[in-house]
Design a protein around this nucleic acid. Structure first.
Lengths: 154, 154
DNA sequence: TTTCATGTAACTATCGATATTACATGAAGG
DNA sequence: CCTTCATGTAATATCGATAGTTACATGAAA
């Protein structure tokens, strides 16, 4: 089953937006996410409605962050996307008449509910600021590796 | 995103098979799961290969359980289905060159891995025997409710 | 040797999600 | 103003994954 990559993609573009100080157009973001500008607008509209980003029309327009990175958790972003269903596996029918199926559903539902609660709490623990810091650390690591390799090479 | 209901469906038919003492044909199972006999055979083939069920050809043939209900966990069934991916949400790309995306993926992967581990351990805790007992309890409940209602009505 | 059932390959249909097109709205530049 | 650039959004097209179907082979029982 194909996975919904909007969460991953949106986090990606949000962090890229944070690196810039000016609005970024849907066109630029679309290229970064390898998709269509209209798709970007559709996805970002939820974030705008929740007040996480701003959009401006006309010259110099585009998307920009409306809040501090530390004030946005991954769970916020997930919710702003409309809380797409997290699981690729589910019950055949809701509210079946068959008692066998009711028993099956009850057990599966409990297991999935627990997993969902854990997942959401993990997403809540992480802010965009932390993701950004993680990115900066990786950037430093790469630079160090590069310096060492260059020193070896010379 | 549409959910894969094979796990739910297979558990359903396995419990129905347990209620009978004779082989059940793919045709009958297909009607119970509201699908096609060929689909049943496809799905059950994994369970057969793992030794959980048997299939016989010819007159009086069909599917029957090869093990005790207490010896089959929901995780066993999940694995026999080929461990379909549990989550409907995932990373846009694996092994991206972009460091921003690497940071995003690393964080999401950790959260999803934890949730998956929890979910699998819950599935491992439940045997088909326990599901069957749950079903029997529901059957008793329904009978009791029905008796009470009948008494009220007369 | 006929009937019934599974095994499996190949093909088709369906359906949801993404991509695209088209046009409206509105802001900034000249 | 009016042209350009950008978003907003509805309508439509395209694509891919999965279930469903058809067809035929295998093999067991009557």
């Amino acid at each position: 089953m194909k996975r919904d990559s909007r969460l991953s993609g949106v986090l990606h573009v949000l962090l890229h937006m944070a690196e810039r100080n000016e609005p970024v157009t849907s066109d630029v973001l679309a290229r970064a996410m390898d998709t269509n500008p209209v798709v970007i607008r559709r996805i970002m509209s939820g974030l705008r409605d929740q007040g996480y980003v701003r959009s401006e029309k006309g010259h110099g327009g585009g998307w920009s962050l409306a809040r501090d990175l530390a004030a946005i958790t991954l769970r916020d972003v997930y919710q702003a996307l409309g809380q797409p269903s997290l699981f690729a596996v589910g019950n055949r029918t809701e509210a079946p008449g068959c008692l066998v199926e009711q028993a099956v559903n009850a057990t599966l539902d409990r297991a999935f509910d627990e997993a969902e609660a854990l997942l959401l709490s993990r997403l809540e623990d992480v802010t965009l600021a932390r993701l950004s810091a993680d990115f900066q650390r990786r950037l430093g690591d790469r630079r160090n590796r590069h310096r060492l390799e260059t020193a070896h090479g010379s």
